[in-house]
Design a binder for these strands. Structure first.
Lengths: 234, 234
DNA sequence: TGTACATCAGTGAACGCGCGTTCACTGATGTAC
DNA sequence: TGTACATCAGTGAACGCGCGTTCACTGATGTAC
C-alpha cells in the first residue's frame, strides 16, 4: 500500500524532474524565449497535453526553472564560500571566491543567467515564490561582511548626508547589525558585480577586455574594498 | 526631374522612418521578442510583404532599431555632458551628469535598453555596423576622464602587477594618453554603471532600494572616484 | 483476499492563433531619346 | 514636348511552420470495504 502509493508518487517526482531537466536543456540551448512545452514533450516522447498533469502552464514551468537557477547559483556561491573558509581564508578572500564563482556559473550557464538576471521574459512576471531563492547570493555577501564586522573588522565607507535615511532603512531591513554605510556599499557592490558579469557574458567586453579572469579578479577586489573588506587572515 | 526623383526618394525615406517609428512603438510596448513585421505592417495599413521593400528581413529591422537606440542614448549622454560643461561643471560633475542621464534614459526606454544591454535576442547576433553607435557612451566617459587628466588632474587608482599587461593593452587600444590604471578602472566603472542601472530596471532593487535617485547618485560618485576623478571646478 | 469504485497519467484530435518569407502581379512614377 | 521603356512600391494569396491550451477518452494504479 505505502509502496504502491509510493510508486505513483515516485513516478510523479521522476517525471516532473525529467520535464524540468529537458526544459533546462532547451533553455541552455536556445534561451527562455524559445522554450516551448511542445518541444519539451516531444523530446520526452510524450504528447504535449500530458505536461499539463505536471505544470498548469508554460509560465509555471518557467517559474520552476527560475527557482532552480537561483538555487543552483546560490549553492555554488555558498559552497565556494565554505571552501574558502575551510582553507582558512578571511572574509576578503571569501568575497573574491564568491564573486569568481558567480562569474564562472554565469559563463557556464549563460541562458539560465540571462533568465534570472537578464531582461525580463516578455509577458511573464516572476511570482513571489522566487524571492527566497533569488536572495541567496545577496544574503551570502551580507554574511561574509557580517563575519568581517564581528571579526577582523571593517573599514567604514563614506556616506553623504542625503543618503543616510535610506541607508538606515536598508540596514534595518537587510542587516541591522551592520553599519548603514556598509550596507549601502554592499547593495551597490552587489549590483556592480552583476554589471561586470553581464557585460562579459553579453558581449560588451568583446574587443575591449581580453584577459577577463585577471580583470574580473581585480574588479572583485575593488568591490570588496568598497564595502570595507580588507585582505588578511580570518 | 530632380524634384520628381526627389519625391520618390523622399517618400522612401518617410516610409522607412514610419516603419522604424512603428517598430519602435511596438518595441517599447512589448519588447524585442514580440516585435513582428506583420504587426508593424498591419498598424501602418500596409501588407506585410510590402515591408520587404524597405528591410530585407526582420533582423535588419532589429539592427536598425538597435543602432537607433544606441544613438539615442549616446546623444542624451553627450548633450548631458555638454550641458554640465556649459554650467561650468568639472569632469567629476560631468561624469555624474552622464551617469544620471544614462539611468534616466534606461528608465524611460526600458525595452530599448533591454535590447541593447539586456540578454541577447535569441537567434539574432548584432552585426558589426552597430559597433560605432554602441561605443558612444564609452567614448564619452573616456573623453571626460581625458579632460580631467589634461586639466585639473586625476588620482591614480591602484593596479596589481598581474593586471599590468592587460591594462597596458587596453590603454593602447582605447586611450593611449591615459594611464593604464585609469583606463582599467574606467572599463570596470563602465560595466558597473550598467549593473546599477540594470538591477534597478529589471526589478532586482524591488523591496531593497527605495530612494533610488539618491542611491544611484552616490554610487555614480563612487564610480567616478574609482576612476580617479575628484569633485571640483573646471 | 477479493471486488467495486475512484483517482490519475497519458492520448489524440482539435481550436485558434500568429509568424517570416516568397512570388507573380498591377499600376504609378521616373528616365532616355 | 511626347512616347517607349525601365524602375519600383505596394498587393494579395499562399507556403509551411510552431505555439499554448482544452477536452473527451482509455486504461492502469491505488483505495475502501
Amino acid at each position: 500500500m505505502s509502496t504502491a502509493h509510493g510508486a505513483r508518487a515516485r513516478a510523479r517526482i521522476e517525471v516532473t524532474a525529467a520535464i524540468k531537466d529537458e526544459a533546462r536543456r532547451q533553455l541552455a540551448a536556445e534561451g527562455a524565449a524559445r522554450l516551448s512545452l511542445r518541444a519539451v514533450a516531444r523530446e520526452l516522447g510524450m504528447v504535449s497535453s500530458a505536461l499539463y498533469r505536471y505544470f498548469p502552464s508554460r509560465d509555471d514551468l518557467l517559474t520552476a526553472l527560475i527557482i532552480d537557477a537561483y538555487d543552483s547559483l546560490g549553492e555554488s556561491a555558498e559552497s565556494a564560500r565554505e571552501g574558502a573558509r575551510d582553507a582558512a581564508a578571511g572574509p576578503f578572500e571569501q568575497w573574491i571566491a564568491v564573486c569568481e564563482v558567480v562569474r564562472r556559473w554565469a559563463l557556464d550557464h549563460p541562458h539560465e543567467y540571462a533568465l534570472i538576471y537578464g531582461s525580463p521574459v516578455p509577458g511573464y512576471t516572476a511570482p513571489d515564490v522566487t524571492v527566497p531563492a533569488a536572495a541567496r547570493v545577496g544574503l551570502l555577501l551580507i554574511g561574509i561582511t557580517r563575519d568581517a564586522h564581528h571579526g577582523p573588522g571593517l573599514a567604514r565607507p563614506s556616506l553623504p548626508a542625503g543618503l543616510r535615511p535610506e541607508a538606515e532603512r536598508m540596514a534595518a531591513d537587510l542587516a541591522p547589525d551592520l553599519p548603514p554605510e556598509v550596507v549601502t556599499a554592499l547593495v551597490a557592490a552587489w549590483a556592480q558585480l552583476y554589471g561586470l558579469v553581464g557585460f562579459e557574458l553579453f558581449g560588451q567586453f568583446n574587443r575591449v577586455v581580453e584577459d577577463r579572469e585577471t580583470f574580473f579578479r581585480h574588479a572583485a577586489e575593488q568591490l570588496a574594498r568598497g564595502v570595507g573588506l580588507v585582505p588578511g587572515p580570518v
